[in-house]
């Protein structure tokens, strides 16, 4: 346990040293602030407050940005240490392989958490104090922050899997970008294209639901647009998802599964790997 803590803290300090934490906070903070302040203008007077409205737009942007940040943090985590020769050294210390994976994981989660809490949280505070809406919709906003961290954790874990499977850093970087492109961009385009081409409506509701739930980024989107009524009103587009009627428990368990399965797989592959 002590080894995991030392490794996690070291990973977080690394993030501070190479300005990753600062960059992520500024990026997320600026994005949230823009959406919160600009986003409230067109909505005019609705029953939903600025915070609730921004959950939709922020979640839509987070879906692109957070996986990218998470993958950039994680793709190098294992393969980079193999290449530098520090993994060999690290494992001669009183540290086992799963300690290494979990230590790095918690360290990277701390980086993402700092960025989300300070970036999104800070922007929300500014909004609360500068608009009349006040704190209305804070629950949905808080839930969005939590699920965003979960989304980040998913892509950190997926990044480790890439990192433990390949032999070179450059391959890992390429694979990480590919993974992001497929899960975040191409999957939804494919789904959309399929629906458009499906003139005879042969794709049943259940097949579509399954396809939506098969991708963690869509699960994240559905969770944020359906979990709270106030958000649902502002979302509009979430009508599709709302009709699918997924329980929050199911969505959350799916997201947590997307974290644990790749993490466990990474540890298993790492244990079998010859150094």
């Amino acid at each position: 346990m002590k080894a995991i803590c030392i490794l996690a803290v070291n990973e977080f300090l690394d993030g501070l040293r190479n300005r990753w934490v600062a960059a992520a906070i500024i990026l997320l903070g600026a994005m949230a602030l823009t959406l919160l302040l600009v986003g409230s203008a067109p909505s005019g007077v609705t029953r939903a407050g600025a915070l609730a409205i921004s959950v939709v737009s922020l979640a839509s942007l987070s879906v692109y940005l957070l996986p990218l940040i998470a993958l950039m943090l994680s793709f190098d985590a294992l393969v980079g240490e193999f290449e530098r020769g520090t993994m060999l050294l690290l494992l001669t210390y009183p540290v086992s392989r799963w300690h290494v994976v979990m230590g790095k994981f918690f360290g990277h989660i701390m980086i993402l958490a700092a960025a989300i809490v300070i970036g999104y949280g800070g922007a929300a505070l500014v909004t609360i104090f500068s608009t009349e809406d006040g704190i209305a919709g804070w629950q949905a906003y808080l839930a969005m922050m939590g699920s965003s961290l979960l989304l980040g954790a998913i892509f950190v874990a997926l990044g480790y899997m890439v990192s433990v499977l390949v032999r070179e850093r450059t391959t890992a970087a390429g694979a990480a970008v590919g993974l992001w492109l497929i899960l975040v961009v191409l999957y939804d385009l494919g789904l959309l294209g399929m629906l458009l081409a499906d003139n005879e409506q042969r794709i049943s509701q259940s097949v579509f639901s399954f396809l939506m739930l098969a991708n963690p980024t869509d699960t994240y989107r559905i969770l944020n647009m359906t979990a709270f009524d106030t958000v649902g009103q502002a979302a509009g587009v979430a009508g599709v998802a709302a009709r699918l009627e997924f329980s929050v428990h199911l969505l959350l368990s799916l997201l947590i599964g997307w974290v644990t399965v790749p993490l466990l797989a990474t540890i298993a592959i790492f244990h079998r790997r010859e150094l």
């Binding site: 080894a3 030392i6 070291n10 300090l13 690394d14 040293r17 530098r84 020769g85 520090t86 210390y93």
Partner: peptide
Amino acid sequence: PENVAFHSAMKGGEVLAFYARL
């Protein structure tokens, strides 16, 4: 190890402190 390369953003003392803690 042969040709070991430590994390280049860390200071020498920080590298050693990290390994000492471990």
